[in-house]
Write a protein that binds this DNA or RNA. Structure first.
Lengths: 202, 202
DNA sequence: AATTTTGTCTAACATCTGTTAGGGATATGA
DNA sequence: TCATATCCCTAACAGATGTTAGACAAAATT
């Protein structure tokens, strides 16, 4: 596979992600995608094996990025709060940096069929687990409340993933600002805190 | 429209919601829906005008329930924290009680076409606004942190809506328990609190 | 008993779907 | 210069899609 071919495939994946984000996977036809690229539908099959292969490539590309990123966070030693803040920051960075891919990763994965569907779920579970480990560590270090770990993990991730619903590269907030706000919210909650709070950082 | 007709239509909507939740609106065919009801696809058109009318009915039914519910909360006087807890409780009650309809309401509304799409967005915005008013009240009463109101509102709603992703009527947690956990999490955050916290309730 | 209404059926339509076959042009490498 | 690989094309397929027309039986109403 030559360089040119590879970059053409990347173009296809990027256009597909944009299309799938906007209309959903099932409502996006290969003809729609082709016309977005200025070619005929049949020509797509020179670069991809099937429509589903496109979905697979998008979903797994993002899964890989997220898993690589959180493995790094967990490797470096920080206390749990710092780890959580890093994990949140990385997550937000990745999904805002790849907003089309992420939207597909988050919403369209269920259109995968077996065996890829199973593999995908495994990867996603692995990622969630790395997050859960951080929460558990925080509880062990006694800096997090003894909340239901699984519940907390999934609540946090759903909050993070919601960002792609409204994020706009030209919008008011930078990914960095979003991460900080979300971290503060997740750690501190809505209720007003006294300055005597344990570890309270404004 | 007779009683029997009406109840048949309700059956159709309920089956459709189940189907749309499982496969998505675009991937669910009228023939799929019909066979779920034990009839032929053409027979559906005696009860509904089109496939999209089904989607409309589902989306707007849930929008109405939510809006009615939060209007009641805002009418009765409570302090902001109580109001927020009530709003959260009602929201969770409604979406767990109508889990198929809610899933469609949350995920499939974008397949509506104009003008219904616009009307739907208006209703949803109205609901979000009622939530925002509660947050603003809490800030005015100085019991909530002076967070970005819009940001906080949408973060909270995304957290609540995520519940339909995993909620199961026969599962471990009751809607009541879910509401409490979520309220605590949203208000108090993850970080451990000292008992000297303002208004801290365990 | 006669008539209308209701709910379903079969048959068919036009259009859209993912995908394949095979051909032709351009660029690459020997 | 010749052979090969790359990229796109047209044409077509088989099946699925939402929807309509019209017929028929059962039920409700008169």
């Amino acid at each position: 596979m030559s360089n040119k071919n590879f970059s053409r495939k990347e173009q296809i994946l990027e256009s597909a992600a944009m299309l799938f984000k906007q209309n959903g996977y099932a409502s996006s036809s290969m003809r729609d995608l082709a016309s977005l690229l200025g070619i005929e539908a049949a020509s797509l099959y020179h670069h991809v094996k099937s429509k589903e292969e496109i979905l697979e490539n998008i979903c797994f590309a993002l899964a890989d990025k997220l898993i690589t990123s959180i493995a790094e966070v967990n490797d470096i030693y920080f206390n749990a709060e710092e780890k959580l803040r890093s994990a949140i920051k990385n997550h937000i960075e990745i999904i805002t940096d790849n907003s089309n891919f992420s939207a597909v990763f988050i919403h369209e994965w269920r259109h995968l069929s077996e065996p890829k569907l199973g593999e995908f779920k495994t990867l996603r579970l692995a990622y969630e687990n790395e997050f859960k480990v951080i929460i558990q560590e925080g509880i062990r270090e006694d800096i997090f409340d003894g909340v239901d770990e699984k519940f907390a993990t999934l609540t946090i991730l759903s909050t993070l993933n919601w960002v792609i619903e409204w994020f706009n590269k030209d919008g008011e907030m930078t990914p960095e600002e979003i991460s900080t706000k979300l971290s503060d919210f997740i750690l501190g909650g809505l209720r007003k805190k006294l300055v005597t709070d344990l570890d309270y950082k404004p």
